[in-house]
Amino acid sequence: MSKQRMMPAINLALQEEMKRDNKVILYGEDAGISLLGQTTGLQDNFGRERVRDTPICENIMTGMAVGAAAAGYRPICHLLYGNFIYTGFDSIANQAAKLKYMTAGQVKLPIVYMAVIGGGRSAAAQHSDIPYPALMNLGGVKIVVPSNSRTAKGLLKSAIRDDNPVFYLTAAGGGRPEEVPDDDNYLIPIGKSEVINQGDDVTIISIGPMTLKAVQATKKLNEKGIGVDLIDLLSLVPIDEDTIISSLKKTGRVIIVDEARDTCSAASHISAILSDKAFKYLKSPIKRVTVKDIAIPYSPILESHVIPEVADIVNCIEKLLESN
C-alpha cells in the first residue's frame, strides 16, 4: 500500500498492464508529455511504438482502436476530455458498440477509451461534460467511473483486461491521496459497486466524481443522526443491480447523486430500475440530485451553483425524511 492521488494511480495501472501484456498499446494527444499525468513516463518505458502521440483527430482515433483491436491488440485510446468523445462519436456509436453484434460475435474488441469528465475547474461547457448517458444508451460498451485513486487503479486494470470496449471515465483531479494497493493483480470487477458506508435511514447511490461529495454529505448526515447506506456505483454498464436493490430494501429511501444533466441521466435510469424491481420497498419517491439541463458555466460561483454540492445532497435527504 502507498498513498497516491488519482493520476499517479492511473499511471501505475497503465505501467503494470503494459508490462504484463505487450499487446496493450496506448495512443492519444500528448501521450508522451501527458497533460494531466496519466501517461507520464510510458514512452520512456515502453517506447514510441507502443505509446504514440497522435495528431488531434478524435474522429479517426476512436475508429483505429476498433481496427487495432480486431487485429489482435488491446488499444487504449486516450481522449483527454470527455467532451472529445462527442468528436469521435461516429466510430464509438456506429462501429465499436455494434461491430461485434452486427457480425454475430465474430470479433472481440478489447478497447479502453479513457477520458476525464465533469466540472469544477472553470473549464467551461466544452471541457466539463459528463458524456456517459449517451454511452449507456449504446448497449455495446461497458462504462466504469472510478471515484478515487484506489478504484481508479483496480478498475483500469480490469478495463484493460476486458474483451469489450470499456469507457474509463474519471474526474480530472480533486480528492485526497488514498491508499492504493501495490499488488499488480489488484482488480476491481467491472459491474460491482462498493458499499462504503452502512446505515439504515437512506441510501445514497453516487456516481464517479460525485462520490467525494457524497462521502462528505454522509459524514454530515451521520453527525445529525441520520444513517446512510452509501454506494459508490463504480460501473454504469453493467450496473450492480443486486447491491442497489438490497440497500433499497434495507432503507426504503434512495437518492442518486449524478453529475450528468438530469434528462436521461444515469440517475434517471437507475431510478427506473429501482421502481421497476423494488417498488414495494420504497417509503418515499426516488430522488435525483443532478445538474439541470444546462451547459456548465465558467464562473466558479455559477459553476458551483449548477453542479451538485455537499449541501444539495444533505438538503435533499433532509427534505425526504421530513416529508415522511
Binding site: 511504438e49 475508429g63 481496427g67 487485429a71 462501429q95 452486427m102
Partner: peptide, 25 residues
C-alpha cells in the same frame, strides 16, 4: 474482411487501426 459498412467513410478508422496492428506485428 473487416466488413462492409453502413456509414460513408465509417470503415476508414478501422482500416487504419488494422494497418497499425500490421505495422507493429
Amino acid at each position: 474482411i473487416i466488413g462492409a459498412n453502413g456509414v460513408v467513410a465509417g470503415g476508414m478508422g478501422l482500416a487504419v487501426g488494422a494497418a497499425l496492428a500490421s505495422k507493429m506485428d
